[in-house]
Computed example of a mutant assay.
Amino acid sequence: MITLVRRVTAVCLLGTALTACAATVQPAPRTARPAPSATSAPPTLAPGPGGLTPVFRNGSRVHGRTAALTFDADMTADQGARAAAGEHFDNPGLISALRALKVPATVFMTGRWAEEYPDQARSIGRDPLFEVANHSYSHYAFTDDCYGLPRVSADRMRADVERAYSAFRKAGVPDARPYFRFPGGCYDRQALRELTPAGVTAVQWDVVSGDAFATDAEAVARQVLEGVRPGSVVVMHCTRSAAPTTERVVRTVVPRLRARGFRFVKVSELIGS
């Protein structure tokens, strides 16, 4: 979700900007197709107005105290040299914490991340506690002026998404979900139109954790705890270099939210409900 360019340093600006960049398009009505059986396809939303790719932000506010923790595994197509030099775009400690706490979660993974960390991608994708969803192949922006990210051209948007699914399959992820998160959360009508043939549901969020480039885990945890409501989708990150506090945040917020009666679910369960 975040851009990993160094000049993005103000976490407080991230939450504001993320809200603004998607403001030009209204989300589709949250009318989900029927919840799947164990053998059927994952639930998706019906197409939005004009047949555009539907957008999901949060689940029901009235049908139980559920919340989805989502983690963006970011890596842009041109960051291989930084990874080779020792920069960590993964976060195995975070995944271990989620497993220890038995927290279902949705990981929005870039295809480039899956190529860099195929063993981790396969482990996450084959663990029933998690589901893998699409965060593009390149982590390039689908609109102009999106946190300094390079922009993928309109005629390459669908191919970029499909390339990510190919990278997941090559890494051994058996059934990546038909959910897509725009890099930076930035989208417009054109992007929704270009992705319509891909058959994905775009997944945004209603709680910005603020873990991007944060160094104060307690401040991030407080922001999550103050923001979560029934049906919330929380956006966090699975990248040690860009979000070093996330594991500590999870270890703090999970027991506190459970004490408030919340149950953690994957995005697919929120959509299906």
Rank of each mutant, 00 (worst) to 15 (best):
P27T: 06
L13K: 09
A81Q: 11
L69T: 01
P29F: 07
A46E: 05
K102S: 14
A85M: 12
A20R: 04
A84H: 06
G50M: 12
F108G: 03
P104Y: 01
T106S: 14
F56Y: 15
A81M: 13
L13A: 14
A97L: 08
R82E: 08
R99C: 09
D74S: 07
G15T: 11
I95Y: 08
A22I: 04
R82W: 06
P104E: 03
L18N: 05
P29R: 11
L13E: 09
H63L: 12
S60M: 07
V103F: 07
G111P: 01
V55S: 03
Q26L: 13
C21V: 11
F89V: 00
D74F: 03
A77N: 10
K102F: 01
M109N: 03
D90T: 02
F89Y: 15
H88R: 02
N91V: 05
V55H: 06
Q79M: 03
P43M: 01
A20E: 02
R82K: 13
E87P: 03
A105F: 02
F108D: 02
R99K: 15
G80I: 00
P29C: 07
R99M: 13
F89G: 00
A17T: 15
A28L: 07
G64W: 04
A100L: 10
A67Y: 01
D72T: 08
T31K: 09
S96L: 10
R82I: 02
A97G: 07
A35M: 06
R33S: 09
L18C: 11
L69W: 03
A22D: 13
G51C: 10
T39M: 10
P49L: 09
L13S: 12
G51T: 14
T106M: 09
A23G: 14
A32P: 15
A67T: 12
A20H: 04
A38H: 04
N58S: 13
P92G: 14
C21F: 10
F56P: 08
Q79K: 00
E87W: 10
G111H: 00
A73C: 14
G111R: 00
G80Y: 00
G59S: 10
A38W: 13
